[in-house]
Deep mutational scan, measured.
Amino acid sequence: KLKCQHCNHLFATKPELLFYKGKMFLFCGKNCSDEYKKKN
């Protein structure tokens, strides 16, 4: 199981990947990825 970088939920589906500031982040979906980008 993977943990979403934004909402901290565990998920087993294909993660949404975001490469940001030289790091890779995993998200449970596009919505969390977009929210994370807005906040950072």
Rank of each mutant, 00 (worst) to 15 (best):
K1V: 02
K1F: 01
K1H: 03
K1A: 02
K1W: 01
K1M: 03
K1E: 06
L2S: 14
L2K: 14
L2E: 15
L2M: 14
L2R: 13
L2Q: 15
L2H: 05
K3C: 04
K3P: 08
K3L: 08
K3Y: 05
K3I: 06
K3E: 13
K3R: 08
K3H: 04
K3V: 05
K3D: 03
K3A: 05
C4Y: 01
C4Q: 00
C4P: 01
C4S: 01
C4G: 00
Q5I: 04
Q5T: 06
Q5Y: 09
Q5K: 03
Q5G: 10
Q5R: 03
Q5D: 02
Q5P: 03
Q5W: 03
Q5M: 07
Q5H: 15
H6Y: 15
H6W: 07
H6T: 08
H6L: 06
H6Q: 07
H6I: 04
H6F: 05
H6P: 00
H6A: 10
H6M: 14
C7P: 00
C7I: 00
C7M: 01
C7T: 00
C7K: 01
C7D: 06
C7N: 03
C7R: 00
C7V: 00
C7Q: 00
N8G: 12
N8A: 13
N8R: 12
N8F: 04
N8W: 04
N8C: 12
N8E: 13
N8Y: 02
N8L: 12
N8H: 06
N8T: 09
H9L: 09
H9C: 08
H9A: 13
H9G: 13
H9Y: 13
H9T: 14
L10H: 12
L10W: 13
L10K: 13
L10P: 14
L10A: 14
L10T: 08
L10Y: 11
L10M: 09
F11K: 05
F11A: 04
F11M: 05
F11V: 14
F11Q: 03
F11T: 13
F11H: 02
F11E: 02
A12M: 06
A12K: 13
A12P: 05
A12R: 10
A12D: 10
A12L: 06
A12Q: 10
A12Y: 03
T13K: 09
T13N: 05
T13E: 09
T13L: 04
T13A: 08
T13P: 05
T13H: 10
K14C: 03
K14A: 04
K14P: 04
K14E: 10
K14V: 05
K14Y: 01
P15G: 04
P15C: 02
P15F: 01
P15N: 06
P15Q: 06
P15I: 02
P15M: 02
P15S: 06
P15Y: 01
E16P: 02
E16Y: 03
E16L: 05
E16S: 05
E16D: 04
E16M: 05
E16V: 06
E16W: 05
E16A: 07
L17Q: 15
L17T: 15
L17N: 15
L17K: 15
L17W: 15
L17F: 04
L17R: 15
L17E: 15
L17G: 10
L17Y: 08
L17P: 14
L17D: 10
L18I: 04
L18Q: 10
L18S: 13
L18A: 11
L18T: 08
L18W: 12
L18R: 08
F19R: 15
F19K: 15
F19L: 12
F19M: 03
F19T: 11
F19I: 04
F19C: 05
F19P: 15
F19E: 15
Y20I: 14
Y20M: 09
Y20R: 06
Y20C: 12
Y20N: 09
Y20P: 02
Y20W: 11
Y20V: 12
Y20Q: 12
Y20H: 08
Y20L: 13
K21V: 04
K21S: 13
K21H: 12
K21R: 11
K21W: 05
K21F: 11
K21I: 03
K21Q: 11
K21L: 12
K21A: 13
G22T: 09
G22C: 09
G22L: 03
G22D: 03
G22R: 06
G22A: 09
G22I: 02
K23H: 10
K23Q: 07
K23P: 02
K23D: 07
K23G: 09
K23R: 07
K23S: 09
K23L: 09
K23C: 04
K23T: 10
M24T: 15
M24E: 15
M24K: 15
M24L: 06
M24P: 14
M24W: 09
M24R: 15
M24Y: 03
M24I: 15
F25R: 14
F25G: 11
F25I: 06
F25P: 04
F25A: 14
F25M: 14
F25E: 10
F25D: 11
F25H: 06
F25K: 09
L26K: 15
L26F: 04
L26S: 14
L26P: 11
L26A: 14
L26D: 09
F27G: 01
F27S: 01
F27P: 01
F27M: 09
F27D: 01
F27Q: 01
F27T: 04
C28S: 00
C28M: 01
C28N: 02
C28L: 00
C28A: 00
C28E: 01
C28H: 01
C28G: 00
G29W: 01
G29D: 02
G29R: 06
G29P: 01
G29K: 13
G29H: 02
G29E: 05
G29Q: 07
K30N: 10
K30Q: 07
K30D: 05
K30S: 10
K30V: 10
K30L: 09
K30I: 13
K30F: 07
K30W: 05
K30E: 10
K30Y: 11
N31V: 08
N31R: 13
N31K: 14
N31P: 12
N31A: 08
N31I: 04
N31H: 15
N31E: 09
N31F: 03
C32G: 00
C32F: 12
C32P: 00
C32S: 00
C32T: 00
C32R: 00
S33D: 03
S33H: 03
S33E: 11
S33A: 11
S33Y: 05
S33R: 09
S33P: 02
S33C: 08
S33T: 06
D34G: 08
D34R: 08
D34S: 09
D34W: 04
D34V: 12
D34T: 05
D34N: 01
D34M: 07
E35S: 12
E35M: 09
E35Y: 06
E35D: 10
E35Q: 08
E35C: 02
E35R: 12
E35V: 08
Y36W: 10
Y36T: 04
Y36Q: 05
Y36G: 04
Y36V: 04
Y36S: 05
Y36L: 04
K37Q: 14
K37R: 10
K37V: 11
K37M: 03
K37G: 11
K37L: 05
K37W: 07
K37N: 15
K38W: 05
K38A: 14
K38T: 12
K38E: 12
K38M: 09
K38G: 11
K38R: 12
K38Q: 09
K39S: 13
K39T: 09
K39M: 07
K39W: 07
K39R: 13
K39H: 08
K39V: 12
K39G: 13
K39Q: 10
K39C: 04
N40Y: 03
N40A: 12
N40L: 03
N40V: 11
N40P: 04
N40H: 06
N40E: 08
